[in-house]
Amino acid sequence: MSNSLHAVFHAIANVRNEQELKLALMDKIGEHFGVQHWGIYFLDEQPTAEIDVSGIPAVCLESNPVGRYVVERHAPAHEQLLLSPSDWKNFCSRHDHEHVMTGPIVCDGRLVGTLNLARDRGNPPFNGNDLADLSALCIHLSAKMATLRANSKVSNSLVPNPLTVRELEIAELVAQGLTNAEIGEKLWITQNSVKQALKRMFRKLKVSARAEMVAKLQDTQVS
């Protein structure tokens, strides 16, 4: 096993909360897998039976075979494991998603998120070694998530927070001045998904505007 993967494991072990995961892995994922794009996507809390396959941005189009494979089997996959290159292009024509690979993040027996990797056109496809490394990485991510969420349940019982981790991530990007389209691109979700999430967040916080939401969250943090 390469030293760079050990560095990823070490970074995961030292993460204190879900929001820190991306920052901790920012450079290490790209270095190890040779990808130009990657992201961690956390599902909103919902019953296992109601997981929205089309909403998981494992690749760039809805109802894709790679995403469905990961959801159904809780196992990593890349497009060439399931499709020929010509068939893959029927699902995705984006040059920045020439090759994709997705792995599951599992907690308490259910899928809570995915780790998504993409290579630009002109780069080699993912292979068996990449898939094995992603599988090992997802085991570490899943174990860490189980610990973080167990700790979060204790914390939330003391200081309830109306927003989910995903919604807090969106709120942070709103505070940075990003548009819905820009937020969707950063989080690997559709612009409509961002719009619907903001509607839920407004209802939870009893606000009617982005600036009002940001101000209310900042006041909560200060207090």
Rank of each mutant, 00 (worst) to 15 (best):
N3E: 10
S4C: 01
A7E: 13
H10Q: 12
I12T: 02
I12C: 03
E18G: 04
E20Q: 13
L23H: 12
A24F: 02
M26H: 09
M26D: 15
D27G: 09
K28S: 15
K28P: 00
I29P: 02
I29V: 11
G30Q: 13
H32K: 08
G34C: 10
V35T: 14
V35D: 02
Q36L: 09
G39E: 02
G39K: 05
I40E: 07
Y41A: 04
F42H: 15
D44P: 04
D44N: 14
Q46H: 15
P47R: 10
E50S: 15
G55S: 12
I56K: 13
P57M: 01
P57N: 09
A58C: 00
V59E: 12
L61E: 14
S63P: 01
N64G: 06
P65T: 04
V66I: 08
V70K: 06
V71T: 07
H74A: 11
H74E: 10
A75L: 14
L82P: 03
W88I: 02
W88S: 14
N90D: 12
F91C: 00
F91A: 08
C92F: 07
S93L: 10
H95M: 13
D96H: 12
H99D: 06
V100P: 02
T102P: 00
G103H: 06
I105N: 01
I105D: 05
V106C: 03
C107V: 13
R110D: 04
L111C: 05
G113M: 02
G113N: 06
L115S: 03
D120A: 14
D120N: 14
D120G: 05
R121Q: 14
P124M: 04
F126R: 07
G128V: 00
N129F: 07
A132S: 09
D133C: 13
L134S: 02
L134A: 03
H140Q: 10
A143P: 00
T147C: 09
L148N: 06
R149Q: 12
R149P: 00
R149S: 02
V154C: 05
S155I: 13
N156A: 13
P160Y: 08
P160I: 01
N161E: 14
P162E: 04
E167D: 07
E172M: 11
E172C: 09
L173G: 05
V174A: 08
Q176C: 13
T179E: 04
E182S: 11
I183Y: 07
E185P: 00
E185R: 12
L187C: 05
T190I: 06
N192W: 09
Q196P: 00
A197S: 15
A197R: 00
L198R: 15
K199F: 13
R200E: 14
R200S: 15
M201Q: 06
M201G: 04
F202N: 11
F202Y: 15
R203C: 08
L205T: 14
E212G: 13
A215Q: 14
K216P: 02
L217K: 01
T220I: 13
V222P: 00
